[in-house]
Simulated scan of single mutants.
Amino acid sequence: MEETQSLSVLSPEMQESFRKELVTMIADTLSELNQKSGNSREWLSKKEACQYLSCSNGTLDKYINEYELKVVVIEGIRRFKKSDLDEFYLKYQI
Rank of each mutant, 00 (worst) to 15 (best):
E2H: 04
T4L: 15
Q5A: 03
Q5P: 00
L7N: 12
L10A: 04
S11V: 01
S11K: 05
Q15H: 11
V23W: 02
T24V: 03
M25K: 09
M25H: 06
A27R: 03
A27N: 03
D28Q: 13
D28G: 13
D28N: 15
S31L: 12
S31E: 11
L33K: 10
L33G: 00
K36N: 14
G38H: 08
G38P: 10
G38D: 11
N39M: 13
N39G: 13
S40H: 10
R41M: 11
R41F: 07
E42G: 10
K46I: 08
K47Y: 01
K47L: 06
A49D: 05
C50Y: 00
C50K: 00
Y52K: 10
S54W: 06
S56I: 05
N57Y: 08
N57V: 03
N57G: 09
G58V: 07
L60M: 08
N65F: 04
E68D: 09
E68I: 08
E68N: 13
V73H: 06
I74A: 05
G76Y: 02
R78V: 09
K82W: 03
S83P: 02
S83I: 15
S83Y: 04
L85M: 03
L85S: 03
L85P: 01
E87N: 09
Y89N: 10
Y89P: 02
L90W: 01
K91P: 05
Y92W: 14
